[in-house]
């Protein structure tokens, strides 16, 4: 079913437009990089602030929630630019091992982040569980980024 979806994308006018353009992929990829920097920064500071490891915010949960909206916007930007990059050659990405790994890791990272958010109740943060959960989520997001780099090298 995914195979059909990717094939349909490959046959679409959007995909043809991206493939034929001399600048589209470049611009899209640059946007992806900028969003990556922002998303990573938000994750780092939010995560470290939440666990009180590097930062002392008076209200840890409030700090996380305040960064959350920016983080979600950055993630939306990453997803959108990512989908457009795939459009440059959908079948190539479909079969690409590093791309598949990245998607799997992305799913796990999202789940881990959801678990962290579930555990946040104003004022009631359990230290050990949260530190472990936050660290796991951050590591998974890092793995997503590394897998993304592998797409270019293989």
């Amino acid at each position: 079913m995914l195979h059909t979806l990717f094939q349909a994308y490959a046959a679409s006018p959007l995909s043809h437009a991206i493939r034929g353009s001399s600048w589209a992929f470049a611009i899209i990829e640059m946007a992806h990089l900028m969003m990556l920097a922002l998303f990573g920064g938000v994750l780092l500071i939010g995560g470290l602030g939440l666990t009180g490891t590097a930062f002392q915010f008076p209200d840890r949960t409030g700090a996380w929630l305040s960064l959350r909206r920016t983080g979600l916007w950055a993630l939306a930007g990453l997803v959108l630019s990512g989908l457009l990059m795939i459009g440059s050659n959908p079948m190539k990405y479909y079969f690409h091992t590093a791309f598949r790994a990245k998607m799997v890791l992305l799913a796990f990272a999202v789940i881990a982040s959801a678990i962290v958010e579930r555990g946040i109740r104003p004022g009631a943060v359990r230290p050990i569980l949260t530190n472990f959960a936050v660290a796991t989520a951050l590591l998974l997001w890092f793995a997503v980024a590394v897998a993304g780099r592998m797409i270019g090298f293989f």
């Binding site: 990556l36 920097a37 922002l38 998303f39 990573g40 920064g41 938000v42 500071i45 980024a145 780099r149």
Partner: peptide, 17 residues
């Protein structure tokens, strides 16, 4: 090259925040 790109989050990302 990967270290350079991924460290963007650590430097530019924190500056952005």
């Amino acid at each position: 090259e990967s270290v350079h790109v991924l460290s963007l989050a650590l430097m530019a990302g924190t500056i952005a925040v």
